[in-house]
């Protein structure tokens, strides 16, 4: 009996050769313990060295190997071939991002958005080093810990139809990251983030499709983070309108 094989259909785009992308089929050995990334590495090493893609850790930590696998955004290092075998596996670059080459997407927009939410501790007055660290209780850590697990893999952007339709939308990971700092007891920068969060292309664009949370490999629940941000912003808005003397 011949060794089993599996077919991968891979999105190819080489702008200097062809202005339109196409799919190329590769038949490779099927190994039960291989993930899609292993299969792509096999193709790169043995069949077609021109295939371009990003990867680093191959253990679900670095967040660089996100791809559309049979239409679903996945980390290719966490998607086993056996989930698809004997059917072919269709691999495309992450949806909703411009494609640089083959499976490599342009990251610029996402990097810009991450910076926009000021994702660091903001203090009204920095306390001097001699006063020691900013301490937190376990409860205070629990308040934001989930949102700090993001590995910036961008699967949530690929899952989000709002981002597909409106690329200016700030998007799930950036908003979850803003919430991660807003909910941190050491942080005092919420009002600074609010201008971006509550802008026209911030939280109010979200229609709670919820697929960002389904796609997230780290269980960050960006959809939940966005809804909580909406509730907090709304409470602030009513405070400002009903109690303008309140000052905050």
């Amino acid at each position: 009996m011949p060794d089993p094989t599996i077919t991968l259909e891979i999105f190819r785009y080489h702008p200097e050769q062809n202005e339109t992308p196409s799919f190329r089929r590769y038949e490779i050995p099927y190994r039960e313990d291989w993930v899609v990334l292993d299969a792509i590495n096999y193709i790169k090493d043995h069949i077609d060295g021109t295939l371009a893609y990003r990867w680093s850790c191959r253990m679900g930590v670095c967040g660089s190997c996100g791809m559309m696998i049979n239409g679903t955004p996945r980390l290719s290092c966490a998607a086993f071939l056996r989930e698809y075998y004997p059917n072919p596996v269709r691999v495309e670059p992450l949806a909703n991002f411009p494609v640089e080459r083959d499976l490599v997407i342009a990251l610029d927009d996402f990097m810009h958005k991450l910076r926009e939410v000021n994702p660091w501790l903001i203090r009204a007055h920095e306390q001097p080093l001699s006063d020691g660290e900013y301490r937190q209780t376990p409860d205070e850590v629990a308040a934001y810990k989930q949102y700090s697990m993001c590995i910036n893999c961008m699967l949530c952007y690929a899952a989000c139809p709002v981002y597909a339709l409106e690329p200016r939308f700030l998007g799930p990971a950036a908003i979850a990251l803003a919430q991660r700092y807003n909910l941190d007891s050491r942080d005092q920068g919420r009002s600074q983030r609010e201008a971006v969060l509550s802008s026209e292309d911030g939280i109010w664009d979200c229609t709670l499709v919820g697929e960002c949370t389904v796609a997230c490999p780290e269980h960050v629940d960006p959809a939940g983070a966005i809804q909580r941000a909406k509730l907090a912003s709304t409470i602030d808005w009513y405070k400002r309108v009903l109690m303008p003397w309140g000052g905050r």
Partner: peptide, 18 residues
């Protein structure tokens, strides 16, 4: 430059969750 994939207005028919 980078290739931008079109979003059809029937995007919500392509996926059960959508």
């Amino acid at each position: 430059g980078p290739y931008r994939r079109p979003v059809p207005s029937t995007w919500w028919l392509h996926n059960r969750a959508y």
